[in-house]
Write a protein that binds this DNA or RNA. Structure first.
Lengths: 196, 196
DNA sequence: GTCTATATACGGATAGAC
DNA sequence: GTCTATCCGTATATAGAC
């Protein structure tokens, strides 16, 4: 069933369903997918353990819903950005600014996207490619910006380069106690955009 | 007990102990720490499950031994490099070449160091800082090279920058199906070293 | 739709014979 | 040092009353 349809229904059941997905999303990020149990989600949401199976057949189904939600969230965020920043360079800089805005989460748990993908890839999880496709959503959008900046030929590599840089910053920030590192790297990246 | 002493003993027991650590090291990398069970290590090593507790009191003890081993392995690898490459730039380039040499593992499982640290950080594991200290081993060595290249003032940031770049490349390579990306990024990094 | 009780499997860990 | 049998906790998942 499509999530758009679900949102339109607005029944109490779907409100609970959305609540489970939101809480699971957060816990999968902060504790990891495997380490998050139904009990954890139940405790955090106030919904009884056994009740989950009314909404989801398996834990993987919850993950699937979380991944759908994440892709939708990214999509609507990018639409927002397009409205707010008409300039491609400003858009790119805003992409990097995410790191600064969510600095404390990143230092504690890494990047929500990168860390989940890495975990699912190691588990050889059925949904690993679903998770990896979150990166594609960003990549398509980034490619548009680079193309607008007359870098059409290199748009794909430049997009991956930026995403890679941000992933590296996230990971190193989460393993290091150096508080200045992340900000300094983001400044470097923004400068890189200016010089494009 | 110090691992050096253990190696000197050379009894059958210590041979088995080292075997457990090696197999666990590999499995922690490829499956993740939490997802690796005693049964997995038993199957891969041919040593009976219940036998592990003769060598290690807990699973965390195995992890501790794995982390010790990894730090020692890194250490001796860096000593090797210092012997083999007298030029600091050549050393730095060799650091990046690791990505190319272990490309297929990286594409499947990410960086052994980064992915384990990320997992343990999310678990809020007692040994998370032990794991993170693997990065320090590399950082100290990198700082020496940058200092030798007259970048003493920026040695720390440059070292973290390089490690971050490599982490980002590893992560993106593991989530993407783009085969050329990793090699292109490494070339870019090597060029960056040349221009230092 | 919600809740309790429970089935089933597997995880780490222990005891004790050999 | 090695192996088997087993404990105990917790995980996902199910059945069924309400």
């Amino acid at each position: 069933m499509n999530s758009c349809i679900i949102l339109l229904m607005g029944t109490k059941g779907e409100k609970n369903r959305n609540r489970i997905v939101s809480i699971a999303d957060d816990l999968f990020y902060k504790k990891g997918y495997e380490h998050t149990s139904f009990t954890d989600i139940a405790d955090a949401s106030g919904i009884a353990r056994g009740n989950f199976y009314y909404y989801f057949k398996t834990k993987d189904d919850i993950l699937c819903a979380v991944l759908d939600k994440r892709r939708e969230d990214i999509d609507s965020m990018l639409v927002e950005w397009d409205k707010k920043y008409p300039d491609p360079k400003a858009r790119l800089k805003n992409y990097m600014l995410m790191l600064v805005k969510s600095q404390s989460n990143i230092e504690n748990f890494g990047c929500p996207m990168g860390s989940l993908c890495l975990e699912l890839n190691k588990l050889r999880h059925v949904l690993q490619h679903d998770a990896n496709s979150m990166f594609e959503v960003f990549r398509f959008w980034l490619e548009k910006q680079f193309t607008a900046l007359s870098h059409k030929k290199d748009a794909r590599f430049l997009s991956m380069h930026i995403m890679g840089r941000c992933q590296g910053i996230s990971l190193l920030a989460s393993t290091s106690s150096d508080v200045s590192y992340l900000n300094r790297e983001v400044k470097l990246l923004q400068q890189w955009v200016d010089e494009l």
